[in-house]
Design a binder for these strands. Structure first.
Length: 266
DNA sequence: CGGGTCAAGCGGATCA
DNA sequence: TGATCCGCTTGACCCG
């Protein structure tokens, strides 16, 4: 990655992020408090495709079936019934309550056979605009759901609770991925800045070294130990440089030219 | 046809 | 021990 290439400068970066994360309100959820809610809000857009239209049509077609089964099996009418794609894989029944398993069992009956007579064809569910919008709205309020919220949302959206749960999981994953990309870009810029700074300091060091070689021998001492004034040849202490000594340590690694700073204090 | 998107499955970790 | 989360992956679908 380019980031690693750019960092090959012998510097150590220590960076943290605080401003991009915000703690979600826990009042309406019983989820783990350790989860940060990212303020980043990538937009999700779902276009209407022919498939979506088909899904809606199929939903309409099974409305009557839903009513005949009963209100407690509301999910049966959900798009899942059109997209109940077990695809031959082992069903993950531990994610379902007994009610959900029953719903799954019944809905599979309605979905495993489509009009083409295909059995167990895994079809991809595309959420409608309305479903996505409502899920997004709910996600803005809290990025995790407690079981009651999940149930309510599923009922509202005509989806299975499991589908709502999956949508939230994938949504969190997308948010995290997006935030990681943002962090990566930020670190790249930091790395570039530090590279430039390092280059500048190296150049300054070279200039200092060249200047030092050009000086007379008695001046070729480290600035930190240079305590004798070259003009009056008085020895000054290191500790009281602010008041008495003609030479003092430079607090910052800025260019120090002894010729431009003659022993005016003498 | 290849790559992107996204719903969903699976396995492991964590927690009450 | 069950519920839930996350990371990784799969597979269907869409698009240029």
């Amino acid at each position: 990655m380019g980031f690693e290439d750019g960092c090959n400068i012998g510097l150590v970066l220590g960076l943290g992020f605080t401003s991009t994360l915000e703690t979600p309100s826990k009042s309406a959820t019983n989820q783990s408090p350790k989860k940060p809610c990212l303020s980043f809000e990538p937009s999700l857009t779902l276009g209407f495709s022919g498939e979506s239209y088909q899904v809606l049509k199929k939903i309409d077609n099974i409305k009557g079936l839903e009513e005949s089964i009963g209100a407690d099996l509301y999910q049966q009418s959900s798009p899942h019934s059109v997209s109940s794609f077990s695809s031959g894989r082992v069903k993950r029944e531990r994610d379902f309550s007994s009610e959900e398993v029953e719903i799954e069992r019944i809905s599979s009956r309605a979905s495993d056979e489509d009009e083409d007579g295909l059995i167990n064809a895994r079809k991809k569910l595309r959420l409608t605009k309305e479903q996505s919008a409502l899920l997004e709205e709910s996600f803005k309020q809290h990025s995790t759901l407690n079981p009651k919220q999940k149930q309510a949302l599923a009922r509202q959206l005509n989806l299975r609770p499991r589908q709502v749960e999956v949508w939230f999981q994938n949504r969190r994953a997308r948010t995290k991925l997006k935030q990681t990309e943002v962090d990566c870009e930020f670190l790249k810029k930091c790395c570039e800045t530090l590279t430039d700074e390092n280059r500048r300091l190296q150049k300054e060091l070279q200039e200092l070294k060249a200047l030092k070689l050009a000086q007379p021998l008695y001046m070729q001492m480290p600035a930190a130990t240079l305590t004798m004034c070259p003009s009056c040849e008085r020895i000054g202490g290191v500790g009281d440089s602010a008041t008495k000594t003609p030479f003092s340590m430079v607090p910052k690694p800025h260019f120090y030219n002894p010729f431009a700073n003659p022993s005016a204090a003498c």
